Simulated assay, not measured.
Amino acid sequence: MLCHRTTSRSPLKHSLRNTTPRRGGGVQVRAVDSGTRAEASGLQSGDTIIEVAGTSIATLGDLDDALDGKRAGATYSVTVTRGGNTLTLQLTLDS
């Protein structure tokens, strides 16, 4: 299982760093760069990404696959868990 790496193919790679697969599915956000679209969307360190644009996320590979082919500059829904709550954020992908 891959740990502590930046997503390789995704337009989010400039916004998210050091994501870690979580037990039970999802990808935990370890850091969000200041001034990025990810930060502006409300994504926070400690969030666990569980869905992107209707695609379930269990691993970093799933996150890469879900974002592969998505248009930079387009806005997609990103569902995360935070503190026991489920939130859906609107994230515009970096170019």
Rank of each mutant, 00 (worst) to 15 (best):
R37M: 12
Q90R: 14
A31Y: 09
R23D: 13
G61K: 10
N18Q: 13
S77I: 00
G25T: 14
G73H: 09
S8V: 15
V29A: 09
G83P: 01
R71W: 06
A53F: 01
G84M: 09
L16Q: 04
T81M: 07
L43N: 04
C3A: 12
D65F: 01
G46T: 13
T48P: 06
M1S: 15
P11K: 09
E39L: 01
A74M: 06
T59C: 02
G69C: 03
T20C: 06
V32F: 04
D62P: 03
R23C: 10
V32Q: 05
H14L: 02
D94P: 00
A38L: 02
G54M: 04
R37W: 07
T88P: 03
L93E: 03
S41N: 07
L87Y: 07
R71K: 15
D33W: 03
V32P: 08
G46M: 07
R37T: 15
S34D: 14
C3L: 09
A31C: 08
T79I: 05
N85R: 15
G83T: 14
G84N: 06
A72T: 15
S10A: 13
G42Y: 04
R30T: 15
R9T: 15
T36P: 04
T86Y: 03
Q28Y: 02
I50G: 05
D33K: 11
G84D: 07
T81N: 10
T55F: 04
G35Q: 13
L87S: 04
T7W: 00
L43E: 02
T6E: 01
S56I: 14
G35I: 15
A53T: 11
H14E: 03
G35M: 14
E51C: 09
L63I: 13
S45G: 14
G46Y: 08
S56F: 03
G54V: 11
V78Q: 04
L93T: 04
S56M: 07
V80G: 03
C3Y: 05
V27G: 12
S41I: 05
C3E: 10
T55S: 13
R82S: 00
A66S: 08
L16H: 01
R30P: 00
G73W: 03
T86N: 04
V29W: 08
G69I: 09
R9H: 11
N85P: 06
N18F: 10
S41D: 05
L89K: 01
R37K: 14
I50D: 01
A31W: 05
D47P: 07
D65N: 10
D94Q: 02
P21W: 00
S15G: 15
I49A: 09
S34W: 10
G69F: 00
L67K: 01
G42V: 11
V80A: 06
